[in-house]
Simulated scan of single mutants.
Amino acid sequence: MAVRRRLALPAWRPKGLLGLALLAPSLVFLGLFTYWPVLQVLWQSLHAEARRQTVFVGLGNYRALFADPAFAAALVNNLVYALGTVVPSLVLALGFALALSSSTRLNAALRAILFLPVLIPLVAASSLFLFIFLPQVGLLDHYLAKLGVQGANWLGDPDVALWSLMGLTIWKNAGYYMLFFLAGLQGIPEESYEAARLDGANSWQRLRYVTLPYLRPTLSFVAVIALLNVVTQVDHIFILTKGGPSDSTNLLLFYVYQQAVERYDLGKAAAATVVSLALLLALSATSLRRMERRTDAEEAR
């Protein structure tokens, strides 16, 4: 009786070759359009243009950057802008999600209305708000005058302009964040609410001890997205204020634009980009790390 021998696979065959082949296109595009530009910016931040030649200056661009009062003002403006937009946007988005969590036709229509600003490009929304914020003749001042209130110079007053941009940002992003909270609410077990009701918990207690703990991962994720939008959205600055008046609305990304395009200081612009990216990565990593720790602690319980 002939014995059939099994053909052994070559020992040198990589086990993850198929997975690597499937990931190769994405890795190529990720390297070309993400990591390579980052390396270019890092290289540019260490060099400067002198007599049409690129000269290595080390940390000279960073020293000039931190000595620039305009950069310090842009950094402070961005922090104020972040606090004034992220927190109200998340609170409004969570309130909208809680109010519209049940599946009814009316709630579906209201969700669509609240999500409508997300569909409007930021440039178009900024042009719309330009007419709303016009002093004396704008839509906002028109209705304030009917109430006997005199409107401010919404875009021309250094004390008011940044807050006007915050209102536009909150209006634009709250509906987008609402979708994430709606999805998070769908994942909360109904048994948890029933147990809280049996224990005599009121609406506020159910929100505090049931809803919010379950929504912590969602909240951390949405907070990271909100921080990304704060740093990367700058179209409304171009349309409405150009960083003014008196640099009161000059944010970090618009500062980078000024250094690169208006003053042709590519090294300083690259240094500002690196600093902005480092701050953003630090904030994102901190938020995600807290989310992981809370998730691990809840699972340990």
Rank of each mutant, 00 (worst) to 15 (best):
G19L: 05
I225S: 00
A201Y: 06
R51N: 14
F33T: 11
L198G: 02
P121W: 02
N229T: 10
T218C: 11
G84M: 04
T54P: 01
L185G: 08
P245V: 07
F56Q: 00
R4S: 13
F254Y: 12
Y81H: 11
A99D: 02
L32A: 11
G244F: 07
R13N: 09
S246G: 15
L277F: 15
G19F: 03
L94N: 02
W43L: 09
G151R: 00
Q258P: 07
I170S: 00
D159G: 10
G151L: 06
P14F: 07
A183D: 06
R263M: 06
D247I: 01
E299I: 15
V274I: 13
V3F: 15
L155R: 02
R5L: 13
A21W: 10
A196Y: 10
A8Q: 11
N229D: 13
P14C: 11
V28I: 15
R5Y: 08
Y214H: 12
F180I: 13
Q150N: 15
A70G: 14
S248N: 04
L22N: 06
P217Y: 06
A260G: 08
L198T: 12
E194I: 04
L288G: 05
L9H: 07
L139N: 07
L283D: 00
Y257H: 12
R63A: 12
Y62K: 04
T104A: 02
V261P: 00
A300L: 10
G31E: 03
W171A: 00
F33H: 05
W43H: 11
A70F: 12
V28E: 01
L130E: 10
G167V: 10
A270S: 10
L288C: 01
L119D: 03
L110P: 05
L128M: 14
Y62C: 02
P88V: 07
G138E: 05
I120Q: 02
A2D: 13
L18C: 08
Q53E: 04
K146P: 08
A72N: 10
P10H: 12
Y257T: 06
A300R: 10
L228H: 14
L92T: 06
S126R: 01
A183M: 09
Y257N: 08
V123F: 03
I120C: 00
L23A: 15
L17A: 15
S284M: 03
V57T: 12
F115Y: 11
V3W: 14
L134T: 13
D247C: 04
A50L: 14
A67G: 15
